[in-house]
């Protein structure tokens, strides 16, 4: 975008973000999450030494938006592939960007085991309680009673179990240096998400362990809502079940202990 005479640029995109339209639906929060990661990588000045690991789902095309070297992982295996990348190149910043079906269902084992090994990688986990790319099926994080194309009567905890709270599940593992849950439904929440993402990359920079941020997101298309209603759902239905907060921060403990 060029600045015309008499115009002043008051808000731009980070240089780490490509200048192209995303494939995300209107009202989807993926665009915000992708941008926040791009901003942090720009601020850390490490984009030239960064390797992204793409997942499968709506998140797959993140490699089209964050300008860096990328390798595409199989569905759910991003944390295993990132393990291989980081072990081969421990001097590089390595991150994954995954959705809920990818990280918490098919890739649950790879995710938890990488976290438990304390792999020095950063994992950004977008939780919108539904499979987006495949058209709205039940996710491991779908809320109780949530109707999806594969839970037409609503998620029944007696049959489908309760939604997985990944940020809390990972936090107690010794290998995890940082685990937080944030949301992207309001400016205040987006700002908090940015701080958490910074931290999740910072613990990698310091070789402290696994950095994890769960980002609650709307999915208007598959929830059959307009964007504002999907936003409201994050606040009124998701956050009560998926509380926001930092569940582990080894740097905070160090400070407290000092």
């Amino acid at each position: 975008m060029s600045i015309q005479p008499g115009e002043k640029l008051v808000f731009g995109a980070p240089s780490t973000l490509s200048d192209r339209l995303t494939h995300y639906c209107p009202g989807c929060h993926h665009g915000i999450g992708t941008r926040l990661v791009a901003e942090v990588l720009e601020e850390f000045g490490c984009i030239k030494e960064t390797i992204g690991v793409a997942s499968v789902g709506c998140s797959v095309f993140t490699y089209n938006y964050i300008v860096a070297d990328w390798v595409e992982a199989a569905h759910g295996r991003a944390c295993a592939t990132a393990t291989g990348v980081k072990r081969a190149r421990p001097d590089r910043m390595v991150f994954t960007y995954q959705g809920d079906g990818d990280l918490a269902a098919i890739g649950f084992n790879e995710s938890v085991q990488a976290a438990n090994r304390g792999e020095h990688i950063t994992v950004i986990f977008v939780n919108n309680t539904i499979y987006g790319m495949t058209g709205g099926q039940m996710a491991p994080t779908s809320l109780i009673g949530q109707k999806t194309t594969t839970s037409p009567r609503g998620r029944n905890p007696k049959k489908e179990g309760a939604p997985l709270r990944m940020a809390e599940l990972l936090a107690p593992l010794d290998g995890v240096a940082f685990s937080a849950r944030c949301a992207m439904d309001s400016v205040a929440h987006v700002n908090a998400a940015k701080r958490a993402i910074r931290k999740a990359f910072d613990v990698q920079r310091q070789n402290l362990g696994f950095g994890f941020v769960e980002l609650l997101s709307g999915c208007p298309t598959n929830l059959h809502m307009d964007p504002l209603s999907a936003n409201r759902r994050v606040r009124e239905e998701m956050i009560p079940y998926f509380p926001l907060g930092v569940f582990k921060d080894v740097t905070a403990n160090e400070k407290a202990g000092a």
Binding site: V53, R77, T81, T83, G84, V85, A88, R117
Partner: peptide, 26 residues
Amino acid sequence: GEFVQAESEVGSANMLLGAGACGVRA
């Protein structure tokens, strides 16, 4: 070098993919 006992052969193969992507003999 790096030795990793993976959680499964699913993990092994996908770690292998990551290291191979870096142009490292794995």
